[in-house]
């Protein structure tokens, strides 16, 4: 087993990606995720991989499209404005059912915004900013260890479902250093008979999203995709519950804001307030069932985000009227304060 090391989130993610068998990385510099391409540039050549700095985010995601279509484990990473540029490629990847991992270390927006961490790309990540009826699996790590572990899972899930898996972090998570035990994944070679590699001994493969005849082809393909997504919804939701067993109030929060919420829960528990934390680890598929069940046992649900209230919409759908849903958020790179959360929860009593 690896020993514990102090590592920056971005670097732990990059190292885990290489360990998970990522052989091709394409990216374009943007703060606050620059440690990922820098790490890849340093490590990939000596470990049999390929690092390439693309001319744009658009080129990077399309290089990922090519490398994935050619059968490689491949990824790109960026931050919010860059993620906007990648939406075209993400839609094509979804249409062609190509697996890959995309990292978004979110920063404040809209526009160029700022460079401080934010969670304002929740809609974009979970609803998809590209065209068409498609979904991407979205994983939301809460600490550096989880960044490392979920990166391995991301590659596994991508190949399992032939889907794009987004790791939705934020600037704070990417920049933060914490002790981490780097994962030692068991590398199974994944058979990709659909990939392009030259058609020696087989019929030509065609990797594409174009399906021109609507009635019998594009609709069929969409039905197939929706069935695939239903399967993912049924079996891949993940959430962590912290002190929820006897909770009268729950906070729903992910990523960096879940860390602040956890601090508030701990402090409130010390004062005897029965409060717990529900932390979705998959943002799509959202753990609707788990949250719905929990909501039936509590008086009030407080959603805490570094946004104007985006996950809030999923929380309301999940709670479905079983409890009041309240919201506390900070925008533009500001972080929620645990003292404020404590005040809000106490106000419910």
């Amino acid at each position: 087993m690896s020993k514990t090391v102090l590592m920056k989130g971005n670097e732990a993610l990059a190292e885990s990606a290489i360990r998970a068998g990522c052989t091709h990385y394409f990216g374009y510099p943007i703060t606050p995720q620059n440690e990922i391409p820098a790490y890849m540039a340093k490590e990939m050549p000596g470990r049999g991989g390929c690092f390439l700095q693309a001319e744009s985010e658009i080129a990077a995601i399309n290089m990922v499209f090519g490398a994935s279509g050619a059968g490689a484990r491949t990824m790109t990473s960026t931050s919010s404005p860059g993620m906007s540029l990648k939406q075209e490629g993400l839609s094509y990847l979804a249409g062609a059912e190509l697996p890959c991992v995309v990292v978004n270390m979110m920063r404040g927006g809209p526009g160029l915004g700022g460079i401080a961490g934010s969670q304002a790309d929740y809609f974009q990540a979970t609803r998809g900013g590209g065209n068409g009826d498609y979904r991407s699996i979205v994983l939301a790590p809460g600490n550096v260890q989880e960044l490392a572990d979920l990166t391995v899972d991301a590659f596994e899930l991508a190949d399992k479902y032939r889907m794009v898996v987004t790791i939705l972090g934020d600037g704070y998570l990417g920049q933060m250093s914490e002790p981490v035990v780097l994962p030692e994944p068991t590398l199974k070679s994944v058979d990709k008979p659909w990939a392009v590699s030259g058609n020696k001994g087989r019929k030509p493969n065609k990797v594409m999203s174009l399906r021109l005849s609507p009635e019998d082809y594009l609709e069929k393909h969409n039905i197939h995709l929706q069935e695939l997504y239903s399967g993912v919804e049924n079996s891949e939701t993940r959430a962590e519950q912290y002190m929820t067993e006897d909770a009268e109030y729950i906070i729903v929060s992910y990523g960096t804001s879940s860390r602040i919420s956890r601090k508030a829960v701990k402090a409130l528990r010390e004062e005897g307030v029965k409060v717990g934390l529900f932390r979705p680890v998959t943002l799509w598929p959202y753990p609707m069932k788990e949250l719905n069940e929990l909501a039936g046992k509590v008086k009030k649900v407080l959603t805490v985000e570094m946004s104007a209230g985006q996950m809030l919409e999923d929380v309301k759908v999940a709670v479905n009227g079983k409890a009041d849903v309240d919201f506390y958020g900070k925008m533009g790179g500001a972080v929620p304060e645990s003292a404020e959360i404590i005040k809000i929860i106490k106000g419910y009593r």
Partner: peptide, 23 residues
Amino acid sequence: GKLLCIAAMREGKFVSHIPSYGA
């Protein structure tokens, strides 16, 4: 900050480090 973290981590304590970054 990193040195403090590593020193304390090796003594079995819990640590975290967030830098200011960028501009």
